[in-house]
Simulated scan of single mutants.
Amino acid sequence: MTGHAIRVILADDHTLFRDGLAALIETDPAFTVVAQCPDGTSAIEVITRDVPDIAVVDIEMPGPGAHAVVTAIRAAAPTVSIVVLSMHQDAELLRSLLDAGASAFLSKTVARDQLIAGLHSVQRSPDNVLLSTSRDSISHALDSETPGPPNLLSPRELEVLHLLAEARSNWQIGRELGITESTVKRHLTNIYAKLGAVSRVDCVRKATAFGIPGV
């Protein structure tokens, strides 16, 4: 525990399900549900404005699709752990949401204890990905065609990436390399584009997946 409750925002278009989920989550005193959203548009607005610790997002809501919702939240509020709930076991959907930056993909059929444990897991280890789906879905997602290697990073971009992987701030990276923060931001923009990343965490994840040494 960090001395304060872990703040959770729920997004689902079924009011009864949201209320029940909120009550279930708050049976663990570590968590407090601070807001509920009925659609993708309000989910993006509320989550990026209030920046909770965890966002629990249903895969099917009115408004932008799940991929768009996860992408928007990850870009605007990269510290939020995004837990996607779904009744589907689609491998392409799973891969798409993980690529967009989802922290966990959980079936709506999970038991209470599994859900609570999952929320604790993404809070405790935000760089890890938690999956609760069928073995076939995971296998198909891993076996599906992977993108080719990214455009070659420059030596300076590799230096920035290595320091980013050490969780250095832009200021710390700039000081280490003797460049300004604005230059660091420009390098990060280029790195994100080359790796197809949407956040610092996603950038390190993609670099690791591409096998870039030193990350």
Rank of each mutant, 00 (worst) to 15 (best):
V8H: 05
L94S: 07
L94F: 03
A30V: 08
A209M: 12
L161C: 07
T79C: 05
Q36C: 03
V122P: 00
M61P: 09
D127N: 15
S121V: 00
L131S: 08
V198A: 11
D143V: 01
E145T: 10
F105S: 05
G178A: 04
R74F: 00
S144R: 14
I116E: 01
P64H: 14
K206I: 03
S182V: 07
F31D: 02
S132E: 04
Y192V: 03
P64Y: 10
T71E: 14
V198P: 00
R186W: 08
M61Q: 04
D90K: 09
S96G: 11
L163M: 07
S139H: 08
Q89R: 12
R7G: 05
H67K: 12
H120K: 13
T183S: 13
I6Y: 06
R18V: 13
P52M: 11
A209H: 12
P52T: 08
L119P: 06
S107Q: 06
R74H: 11
T41N: 08
W171F: 12
T32E: 15
F17E: 04
R175K: 13
T32H: 14
L97S: 02
R200Q: 10
V70M: 04
L130V: 15
A193T: 10
A193I: 06
E157T: 07
V70S: 12
L98V: 11
T208W: 04
T2M: 09
